[in-house]
């Protein structure tokens, strides 16, 4: 295959550009991981040599351990609740038509678009008046309000591929709508449900502003990091950061494994 030089140069430039862009995206994540093994107290060049000191330090830090446990609990609760709610919302959007549907869908879809500073402040002010301030459940509830948007989106995409005749066929065979939902729709959505579970866990695991506002004495891991970051430069930050990063990346990759969302369809028949 003999392409003209211009084409080859253009290809090279395209790949080069893409590589540079990916490097830009990857750099901060690599830096966190690399410097978590740095023996220096303050992250500076040159690297102070390999050390596991800071990783050990975070294992010994009860506040970081507590925060980690809190994050896991909140993340699990968020994952379950927002997957359930997200499925309900997606199915309603898929199956029914009613006058206030647009507002309904927007109510679920919009929360991630509101800056977290504003939302956190609003949630704190309102929920504290309901006596809900300072509980893990409140952090979870607020995270669900945000993560359900992502759950709905993932599950709704999957529902797009569900043949519109499948459920009516089940109804005609005598299945109640609920039974059809359970036996036909839910199994079909399984990959999306799993994906939504992990993705909402990731959303929760990463959120810090709202958790700071409504959590009271209960800190999640990102809140702990925010406090470490704002308090004073603390060499544990990179080590905790590596933990957070590994967990989020794992959650997202698992989610992705199940989304079935691919860039473009490979089967020409669809």
């Amino acid at each position: 295959m003999n392409r003209p030089l211009a084409t080859r140069l253009s290809r090279l430039a395209q790949y080069g550009f893409l590589g540079a862009l990916f490097l830009f995206i990857a750099t901060p994540m690599l830096v966190i991981v690399v410097f978590s093994f740095d023996a220096n107290r303050f992250p500076t060049i040159p690297w102070g040599g390999f050390s596991l000191e800071w990783h050990r330090a975070i294992l010994d830090d009860p506040m970081i351990r507590d925060a980690f446990v809190n994050s896991v609990l909140v993340g699990l609760g968020t994952a379950v609740a927002s997957t359930v709610l997200g499925f309900a919302a997606a199915y309603i959007d898929f199956r029914y038509r009613f006058r206030l549907k647009l507002p309904f869908v927007l109510l679920v879809a919009v929360p991630p678009a509101v800056p977290a500073t504003i939302l956190g402040m609003a949630m704190l002010a309102f929920l504290s008046r309901l006596g809900l301030f300072g509980r893990l459940e409140t952090i979870m509830a607020c995270h669900v309000a945000i993560a359900t948007s992502f759950s709905m989106a993932i599950i709704r995409l999957r529902l797009n591929d569900l043949s519109r005749d499948l459920e009516p066929a089940a109804w005609n065979l005598g299945a109640s709508p609920a039974a059809a939902l359970v036996h036909v729709v839910l199994p079909f959505c399984k990959p999306a449900l799993i994906a939504s579970f992990f993705l909402s866990a990731a959303v929760s695991f990463d959120e810090f502003l709202i958790a700071w506002f409504v959590g009271g004495v209960h800190e999640t891991l990102p809140v702990r990091i925010l406090n470490l970051l704002q308090g004073q430069v603390n060499p544990k930050i990179n080590a905790v950061g590596t933990v957070v990063l590994v967990v989020s990346v794992a959650l997202v990759l698992i989610a992705q494994r199940f989304t079935g969302v691919r860039a473009g369809r490979r089967t020409p028949t669809s």
Partner: peptide
């Protein structure tokens, strides 16, 4: 999940 001990208010 809330039944577990840590899921209590402050």
């Amino acid at each position: 999940l809330a039944a577990t001990s840590r899921w209590s208010p402050a």
